Simulated scan of single mutants.
Amino acid sequence: MNAWEGGVLVEWDWWTLEFGDVHAGAVGVLVAGGEPGPVYFDVGSGPDVPSTARWSAYDGRAGRPRAEALRAGCACGWRGAAEYPLDWATVGDQPLYEADIDLAGPLADWNAHLSFVRDTAEPLPEPLAALLVQLTEQLTTTAADTPLAALRAVGMLERIAARVGREAAGALADDGVAAETVAAGLGTTRSKALMLLLTAQSR
């Protein structure tokens, strides 16, 4: 999954249906000066200069920084404490994207981060959680068998979710629940929780 943040293409390595793009994960890099900014590619003249923060771009080629270590990162701003040094003697002259780099460490750290977020989030009632799993499976099957029916069902779900979401957010806003509490309960960021509450108050 790709996203644009501040005009920079961010290519997420991991994503979950549970948290969506709020907690999308990626492999980050560290250089001698810490966490580097995006790298830019010279494509000649023109107003737009392509850039990326993809870990494999930090290979020292064409004046780009060379990564010394990898670590996990999350769209919410979290960064893994563990660092995984790159063995450039093994990588050699090949581009990083062609090298056999073990990303198991950063992935495990990101999963641990998600576990913490999940543990602090408001738990779903078991019948509702089971229903959501069943609904996902049924929609997936319907999309393969009768895609038009699946799209119709998705449209209905979007309208149901919008209505119920407004009601639930409105109740929280009326009760004066803080944005920080809502963010923790939803496993989202404070800014998104605040926007949710403000939108509900203006209904």
Rank of each mutant, 00 (worst) to 15 (best):
V164E: 11
Y58S: 10
A53W: 04
A168D: 00
N2R: 14
V8Y: 00
G73H: 05
L197V: 14
V31F: 04
L107T: 07
R64S: 10
A75M: 11
G155N: 11
A200C: 15
L96V: 10
V8K: 01
D48P: 00
L114W: 00
T199L: 15
T52W: 02
V29E: 02
S51T: 01
G187N: 04
L30K: 01
L96D: 02
H113P: 02
S45T: 06
T188L: 12
C74W: 09
W88T: 12
T142N: 11
A32Q: 06
A193P: 11
A161L: 08
R66Y: 03
A150N: 11
W88C: 10
A171K: 15
W55V: 10
S51C: 11
L198K: 15
L196A: 13
A161P: 01
E98C: 10
T16R: 02
A82L: 06
R166G: 15
G63C: 09
A179M: 03
L186Y: 00
A162K: 13
A99M: 09
V91H: 05
F116D: 03
Y84K: 01
W4H: 07
A168K: 14
A153C: 04
F116G: 02
T189I: 07
T141H: 14
G6R: 04
T188R: 12
A171Y: 06
E98F: 11
A72S: 07
A173Y: 13
G46L: 01
A161R: 08
A162T: 12
L151E: 11
T52N: 03
S45W: 03
R54A: 14
L198H: 15
D93Q: 11
G6P: 01
E167P: 07
W14H: 04
A104R: 00
A171Q: 14
A130Q: 08
N2G: 13
S56F: 08
L128D: 05
A130D: 05
Y40F: 12
A153M: 08
G37Y: 06
R66L: 07
E180A: 08
E180V: 04
T141K: 14
A99N: 07
L86K: 14
L148A: 14
L186C: 09
V39Q: 09
L194F: 07
G46I: 00
L124C: 00
G176K: 00
E167W: 08
R61D: 05
P127C: 02
E83Q: 10
L139I: 04
L157S: 11
G60D: 10
G165L: 10
F116M: 06
A3V: 15
T141D: 15
Y84W: 05
D13H: 01
G170D: 13
G63N: 09
L103R: 12
A150L: 06
D175M: 13
I101T: 03
N2K: 12
Y97P: 06
A112Y: 01
L172M: 14
D119E: 03
L196I: 15
L148W: 06
D102F: 00
E137Y: 12
V10F: 06
A200K: 15
L70S: 12
P125C: 00
E98H: 11
P36C: 06
E68H: 10
W88Y: 10
L194N: 14
E180M: 03
K192Q: 14
L186I: 12
A57T: 15
A161W: 05
D102Y: 00
